[in-house]
Amino acid sequence: MSSDDNVSEKAVDLTVLWVKAEPNLRAFVAATVWDVHHAEDVLQEIASVVSMNFASYDPARPFLPWSLGIARLKVLEYLRSCGRDRVVLSDATLLNLESAVQSLSEEDLANRRAALQGCVKRLAGRQRRVIELRYIKEKPLEEIARELATTRSTVAVTLHRARTALRECINRSLDVEGTAS
């Protein structure tokens, strides 16, 4: 077998493992790095370190805990870089979240993600507008309030209701899917 074949095989091994672990890793990063834009960056850094360290990964061991170890370090690096600009969960809580991430199945997370695709389409009116401004335009609450000619607290309430609506929609979708299957 040529070295090109070996590289290619190794790459496929990594990508298959990564794809399976990615929903959990993504969930862990999401839980600890609330800023969406930064969370994507951290996730990309994790992927980079995972790929560079893949040669030292022992295939006899589960991939998720190994990659989650790297994820935790990258998240801690990010949190340190934030200084006091944001609230940071305690080490003990981070560990509990790490355990929770490992206990969730990637299927569940993937299904929730798929359900979300349908749920965002159902968002309408002011809730949709607030979600768009917050998540796509990445505007802070004050700016959203100015743009919508309302108060900051009203925006916060609307945003909370929109998020709750999405979460409830996902749960309903999964319940229906579970009943149907």
Binding site: A27, A30, A31, L97, L109
Partner: peptide, 29 residues
């Protein structure tokens, strides 16, 4: 933190909500 630490199911719930939060922009785009 007390709520998350109290019960592993709470920690799971927090993680699921977080994943939804991160995926919301994704889903919109």
């Amino acid at each position: 933190e007390a709520w998350i630490d109290k019960d592993p199911r709470n920690a799971q719930q927090f993680v699921q909500w977080s994943a939804t939060h991160l995926d919301t922009r994704t889903a919109m785009q």
